[in-house]
Design a protein around this nucleic acid. Structure first.
Lengths: 137, 137
DNA sequence: ATTTAAATTTTTAATTATTTGCATTTGTTT
DNA sequence: AAACAAATGCAAATAATTAAAAATTTAAAT
């Protein structure tokens, strides 16, 4: 676990307020990928006065500052995750909704290669695998 | 270009009405990936009485019947595309919005391998590359 | 320490994309 | 043709998100 979001805000010059600090803390302590609703519920437990509009604005601010990433998995609401050095993709259990993070360097390389082939510089990408857990025997 | 959507409906037992036939025709003749608005505009030129609710209902029906696929590219509205045998992924020009289709068998294989590694059967996946066109020299 | 200005938050209203309820129309069965 | 089902159009309802206005907090300047 690397820097907290609060530390990242400091080093990036993102101003912190009480509510932003709480949102930052909750996100930093979340090991899953909460959507705004879930995040709002968690911060509400710490300060019930925080409005959902602030949560929306803050995750957007953090995203624009490169502190969080937004995922738009199939058919659901946007989910947020702290952005750390180690990039990864996601494998989603279609039954339970569980999200597994993975990295595959080979796939990464091939993606870049595909973009190059068409004359593009790859600036972003999204890879999501949807799977069903195999019966363990 | 394979079967038209109308033919697919016949072979799959999806009932066709005048408006569905028009929507099917417009989709079959579209080589891009229209969103519902764009599709609605195109069908309106043929029959201005078709309502957007019908367009929504029809693309959903076609999707559930395995005739269309729905793409939820970053930050925009859902886009639809005719589903043919040849699966492919998408490279999106972040400046122009242009969408390029590509296939990379190696990536496909690796995806399956990753899912297996975590004990999953891959049932679906989404790979989108976002790129900026290189200056052609 | 007050005043002033700027930024942020809350509350509420507005938007956007999509879906649904319901009356009407169209199609099918008898 | 009457009766029933299915599909459509319209308008209202939802859901997620954003924006506007007013209130409050924070920071800066006197």
């Amino acid at each position: 676990m690397s820097d907290t979001i609060e530390q990242k805000c400091l080093s990036k010059g993102v101003k912190l307020t009480d509510q932003r600090r709480i949102i930052a803390k909750v996100m930093s302590e979340s090991s899953d990928h909460p959507n705004v609703d879930e995040l709002y519920n968690r911060v509400s437990k710490i300060d019930s006065k925080i409005s959902i509009a602030t949560v929306y604005r803050t995750v957007k601010l953090f995203e624009e500052s490169g502190i969080l990433t937004k995922h738009e998995f199939k058919g659901g609401k946007a989910r947020y995750e702290e952005l750390n050095e180690g990039h990864h993709d996601h494998l989603i259990d279609v039954k339970s909704g569980e999200i597994i993070e993975f990295v595959d360097e080979e796939i990464e390389k091939l993606q870049k290669k595909v973009a190059e082939k068409y004359g593009y510089n790859l600036v972003d990408h999204k890879l999501e695998l949807y799977g069903i857990k195999k019966k363990s025997q």
